Simulated assay, not measured.
Amino acid sequence: MIAAATVDDGGADDAELVVNDRTCIVTREATSPEMLIRFVASPAGDVVPDLKRQLPGRGCWIKGERALIDTAIKRKLFTRALKTEVSVSPDLGALVDRLLVADLLGMMSMARKAGQFVTGATKVDAAIRSGAAAGVFHAADAAADGVRKIDQARKAWRLGTEAEEDIPSFALLTSAEMDELMGQNAFIHAAALAGQAGEGVVKRANMLKRYRNSGQSGARSGAGRPEL
């Protein structure tokens, strides 16, 4: 597939974005929009992230990794790519992180309403062993013993089904962070279930994990506490 230009003239045509690859302004690599974050210049001349790829105007793309956004700021690549003088907040990388977290939590809420997100160690264990779990979530400061028991269920499921990959496991927020952001919906252990909404949760969790560039994949194997 021939890569599209580094910049685009608008985010309204989702069909075009799906068909064409885009090019990261930092790495110069062409890839699908799902692996990239789009940025545009606001009417005031500020660079703003466009996670939904819907804002109007010329846009540019960066692979979804925090370090690459920091590099783009340092090298003043936004002005060159957007072909206009723009103001870039030094906290742009942190803003994107917050937006990705909000997007993930919003999808968790939708999945919960659709019956595709369950919480509590007992329900998570049952979802794993039944094959219904699309992804497992822990508070980053969850007790190691609780995580170990759920990892054992993931391992048993994989051995029993001879699956090539583990059910992915994530630990992206501490319990205190979830209490602040989610209120009564906070959890220590949870599972996204198979289905459009549950799989949307896993997709967004993978994106946040890649963005934070921890060096860990979304899928984990073995026991022990999951890492950020």
Rank of each mutant, 00 (worst) to 15 (best):
Q54Y: 03
I128G: 04
G115T: 13
A30E: 09
A133N: 02
E65M: 11
G218M: 03
V118R: 05
P56T: 11
R204L: 13
A153Y: 00
G222D: 00
R53W: 12
D91K: 07
T23H: 10
K83C: 07
G215N: 02
M35W: 13
M107P: 05
A41K: 08
L105E: 09
R98L: 12
L92H: 07
G218Y: 01
R22G: 09
E16M: 09
S109D: 15
T161G: 05
T27K: 05
G135V: 05
T161W: 08
Q196K: 14
D141L: 02
K52A: 14
G200Y: 01
D103R: 14
I73K: 09
A5I: 00
H189I: 00
S169Q: 13
P168M: 01
D50K: 05
V118F: 03
K52L: 13
T174P: 05
A134H: 04
G106D: 11
G200K: 04
A186H: 07
N20I: 12
H189T: 08
R58H: 13
L82I: 08
A127K: 09
I188V: 15
G59Y: 09
I167A: 02
G183W: 13
R158F: 02
G45D: 02
G160P: 07
S109K: 14
G200M: 01
D70K: 12
A72W: 03
N185C: 10
A44W: 02
K74P: 01
A3P: 13
I128D: 01
V201T: 01
N185A: 15
R148N: 15
G222S: 00
S175C: 09
I2V: 12
A111V: 03
M182T: 02
N20Q: 15
L68Y: 09
H138V: 00
K123F: 07
T71C: 11
N20A: 15
I25A: 05
A192N: 06
N206T: 11
N206M: 09
L104M: 14
V202C: 06
A126T: 07
R148W: 12
V147R: 10
A191D: 03
F117P: 13
Q216V: 10
V40Q: 04
P49G: 05
A171N: 01
S87P: 14
T122H: 06
G11T: 12
T119W: 02
R148I: 07
D91G: 04
A191E: 04
A67M: 05
V88M: 13
A121M: 11
M1Y: 14
S32W: 09
A67P: 04
M108G: 08
A126P: 07
L193A: 02
V101K: 12
I69D: 02
R225K: 14
L17N: 08
D13G: 06
G146K: 06
D141C: 00
T174I: 03
G93A: 15
S42L: 04
G200S: 11
R66G: 03
M182E: 11
E34I: 11
A197L: 08
W61R: 07
T122G: 03
G106S: 12
A171M: 04
S214N: 06
L159P: 02
K149C: 10
E165M: 13
D179E: 15
A197P: 04
A5T: 10
L172G: 07
E162S: 15
V147A: 15
L68K: 09
P168L: 01
V118D: 04
W157Q: 10
R22V: 14
R129A: 14
L173Q: 09
